[in-house]
């Protein structure tokens, strides 16, 4: 390496690559860092939990260590009826989301409101906590912020879960993990495009819609409809159930795989699901030998398909 040219070359290489890293890493990070979170971003961050991909708490992506989204209709402390609100319930030990761990990703206003009015600093992971998305004023403007209702209203995670019916508990966080693990995002994008899609798939996401979400799983190869607003287009649980079990039941031309295996071993009544019999019956139906398709079994309350459906229906 004694050549003088190579010394110059090595330095030039460092400058060239360093300059490129400066422009493509450092400068964008400044731009993105200054983005304030939107209400959508807060809801996503709080309902998905810490990380939907591989993590220590959930190395095999089974949906462990994720919060529940609970529709609260009665005040869990007083028992009075209230206007329904979505509460994000972190049981004791559930990892807090990035919005709580690193509140500086929220932007100045939301961070300040969450700290002062929302008391998020008092939330302790090992005790669990319940969060709401509330609205408050900061320097004359209204912003959404995170309210730690365990501190402000004494709603503990256990109290909220005891007071709520099972149908009001949504496993949105675990469902996002299913969405990642099952590779839904290889075909369904979560990114209506800015240049079209407005009429068909709805509003493209805004700049602050993702703060706190990881992985974002936008998807790159759209072989199927965009799902960012699917819950607004179709909120029928029955349709979703049939579609997940065998998409050809509701859409004969669909190329979506069957996700019947997410039902697990048993149905809602704890009876074994006879998949072989179902397939035999379905083949009869598909061949035109029977008029009705076999009935899709109701899923068990702790089945993976419930998680996934709760997530998909949460995409409003």
């Amino acid at each position: 390496m004694a050549f003088r040219e190579y010394k110059i070359g090595t330095r030039m290489f460092g400058i060239a690559l360093g300059g490129s890293m400066m422009i493509t890493l450092y400068m964008p990070s400044l731009s993105i860092y200054s983005v304030g979170v939107t209400e959508t971003g807060l809801v996503k961050g709080l309902s998905y939990g810490h990380n939907s991909g591989f993590s220590y708490e959930d190395p095999f992506l089974q949906g462990k260590g994720k919060p529940l989204t609970v529709t609260v209709k009665k005040d869990p402390v007083t028992g009075d009826d209230i206007d329904p609100v979505s509460a994000y319930v972190y049981k004791a030990g559930t990892p807090f989301p990035s919005a709580i761990r690193n509140p500086n990703i929220l932007g100045k206003a939301v961070q300040a409101l969450s700290a002062e009015d929302g008391q998020v600093g008092e939330a302790v992971e090992s005790d669990g906590a319940v969060f709401l998305v509330s609205r408050g004023d900061y320097e004359g403007e209204t912003f959404p912020y995170i309210e730690n209702v365990t501190a402000t209203r004494k709603w503990t995670a256990d109290a909220v879960l005891t007071a709520a019916a099972d149908t009001d508990k949504h496993h949105v966080g675990s469902g996002k993990t299913m969405f990642i693990r099952e590779g839904c995002w290889w075909c369904h994008t979560l990114l209506p495009e800015q240049t079209q899609d407005w009429q068909y798939f709805g509003l493209p996401p805004r700049l602050g819609d993702f703060n706190g979400e990881a992985p974002t799983a936008f998807g790159s190869d759209r072989k199927a409809p965009d799902l960012l607003h699917v819950g607004s287009r179709n909120s029928s649980k029955e349709w979703m159930m049939m579609h997940f079990f065998n998409p050809r039941l509701v859409q004969p031309h669909s190329i979506m795989p069957r996700f019947d295996y997410l039902w697990g071993e048993v149905d809602a009544n704890d009876n074994d699901i006879d998949f072989d019999q179902w397939r035999t019956d379905y083949k009869e139906y598909a061949a035109g030998n029977s008029i009705y398709p076999p009935v899709v079994p109701n899923y068990a309350p702790n089945s993976e398909i419930r998680y996934l459906m709760d997530f998909v229906l949460s995409l409003k």
């Binding site: 990703i105 700049l207 979400e213």
Partner: peptide
């Protein structure tokens, strides 16, 4: 090596949102 090291920053440090999306495609 630089690309693999930097591209996985979101996973080591739980970076989220657009930062994560951008680094994925970077």
């Amino acid at each position: 090596m630089i690309v693999v090291l930097v591209g996985n920053l979101p996973e080591y440090f739980s970076l989220t949102g657009l930062t994560e999306a951008y680094l994925t495609w970077w």
